[in-house]
């Protein structure tokens, strides 16, 4: 894949909101397992298992996404299980962003404790302090990456692990009851064989 593979993933630059068309054009058939994974997740972070994040990292991301789509009169990123959507994305179709998260979270903690020396983690800040720190970094690539993931997971099909109980769709008034539910996904799940018999492929 090499250089061209990386260039495809400059999705954050592609549109006003950073939801570029090719971003998810990544590795093959892992969406199905993402769905299975997400469906099993318990609600509280303390009970949850994460595939990529440490529990501490998950707590930080959870706090960050809860600022991007807060829980107010209506459910937010936390209730939509966005931290699980991102966790699974980072070991499946968006593996290349792992380093961005690791580095970004280290910088976030460092910034949080520079601004508020009594804490060592972003998630230890009170709500308004968190808001102040995120406002400071809102134009950075890391913030935009997390924002894009948060919004994508919030409004994507629940099959991908976010949008739990379709609360994102409910927020904007989208009702998927007209969607057909065939046993989708066979094409993604079956890799194309590398060789066939000498008859010249499938007749």
């Amino acid at each position: 894949m090499g250089a061209q593979g990386k260039s495809r993933r400059s999705f954050l630059k592609k549109s006003a909101v950073g939801l570029g068309g090719a971003w998810f054009a990544a590795n093959h058939p892992q969406i199905l397992s993402a769905a299975e994974h997400a469906a099993e997740q318990p609600v509280t972070l303390q009970q949850a298992r994460f595939a990529f994040f440490t529990r501490e990292q998950a707590t930080e991301i959870d706090a960050m996404t809860a600022q991007i789509i807060p829980t107010d009169q209506t459910p937010g990123a936390r209730e939509a299980h966005i931290v699980h959507f991102i966790d699974r994305a980072l070991i499946t179709f968006d593996q290349e962003r792992q380093g961005d998260y690791t580095r970004g979270l280290e910088e976030l903690s460092a910034l949080a404790s520079r601004r508020f020396p009594s804490v060592t983690k972003f998630s230890d800040l009170i709500y308004d302090q968190q808001l102040q720190v995120l406002t400071e970094i809102e134009d950075t690539p890391f913030f935009n990456l997390v924002r894009t993931h948060t919004i994508t997971g919030f409004f994507a099909s629940p099959l991908h692990g976010g949008n739990h109980d379709k609360i994102g769709w409910e927020l904007v008034g989208y009702d998927d009851s007209l969607s057909h539910e065939a046993p989708f996904g066979y094409y993604d799940a079956l890799p194309i064989p590398q060789s066939t018999t000498v008859t010249g492929g499938d007749a």
Partner: peptide
């Protein structure tokens, strides 16, 4: 599938 991530973002 009617799946926006798969169709539109994963191409």
């Amino acid at each position: 599938a009617p799946d926006e991530i798969r169709n539109n973002y994963r191409d």
